[in-house]
């Protein structure tokens, strides 16, 4: 037990170092920091146009008021911020590491290979506007949907958000790992990342088949839909349990797949 505790502390410390170095390099290239925020603001405006149109239509959408929709889109914006700040840049670099053989460098390090290659780069600039904007939207949506602010609601909302991050990690890492076989994955990356955008609108607008596929097979709807659905009492008991179990199931699957894929690594050049 103490061994696990020691290991966790060690990895937490290393993650803190990743964060520190990312911040240092951001400060060195300040213009990139500003541009990162600027571009994300542009994306937020695009997401807001959807909300604006929903308000212009002014009607309930499948029982959701425009303010309910704001709650969903706010959560989606927060998750976009977390995904692009903590994970995205690591994931797109992975095929590059495999192609050039630079993965060798990391293999020799006395630390989990999956940990260092998938979590090393952190870019705070993209998170700042998304998290500020998203939290404001969630607050407005929460308030105008007349949802009580109590411990159970806050824990449920934040809990499903954190579980969403774990699911995000799993389902967007899998396509990148195909690079162990195919080397280049650009097309696939674009395609799998556009799956993320299905959360642009509440999952209830899709037909039953898509909802099932997006919940159980490729669980994209678990990323940002379960937090607001929990608040709006839109989750059945089965869905609540699945929302908690699925992130761990997929995380274990990714771990198994990682170990399997690594055996196909042949290095390059040299």
């Amino acid at each position: 037990m103490s061994q696990i505790w020691k290991n966790t502390r060690r990895y937490a410390y290393i993650y803190f170092l990743f964060l520190k170095y990312s911040l240092i390099s951001l400060m060195a290239y300040r213009i990139n920091f500003v541009f990162g925020m600027l571009v994300e603001l542009g994306y937020i405006v695009i997401k807001l146009t959807y909300v604006y149109i929903v308000f212009r239509v002014g009607e309930n959408i499948n029982g959701l008021t425009p303010y309910n929709v704001t709650l969903f889109v706010g959560t989606y914006i927060i998750m976009s911020g977390i995904y692009s700040a903590l994970l995205f840049f690591n994931f797109i670099k992975l095929p590059e590491l495999i192609r050039t053989g630079d993965l060798d460098m990391y293999i020799t390090k006395p630390i989990s290979l999956q940990f260092i290659t998938t979590l090393k780069s952190i870019d705070i600039s993209v998170a700042v506007p998304n998290i500020i904007g998203g939290v404001i939207m969630v607050a407005i949506g929460w308030n105008q949907s007349h949802i009580e602010v109590n411990a159970a609601n806050v824990i449920g909302y934040v809990g499903y958000l954190i579980l969403g991050v774990i699911t995000t990690y799993s389902i967007f890492l899998i396509p990148q790992m195909l690079a162990f076989w195919t080397v280049k994955t650009t097309g696939l990356t674009d395609l799998s990342n556009s799956l993320f955008d299905f959360n642009q609108m509440p999952m209830t607008i899709y037909n039953r088949l898509l909802q099932r596929v997006g919940t159980f097979i490729i669980p994209v709807f678990l990323l940002t839909n379960y937090s607001p659905l929990f608040l709006l009492h839109g989750l059945s008991r089965l869905e609540m349990v699945w929302g908690i179990a699925a992130p761990f199931i997929f995380l274990i699957l990714v771990r198994i797949f990682w170990n399997y894929a690594l055996r196909h690594y042949t290095s390059a050049s040299s």
Partner: peptide, 12 residues
């Protein structure tokens, strides 16, 4: 450096 301005301009 201009990439951030170009990209944002494109989105808007």
């Amino acid at each position: 450096e201009v990439w951030g301005i170009y990209h944002t301009f494109g989105l808007l």
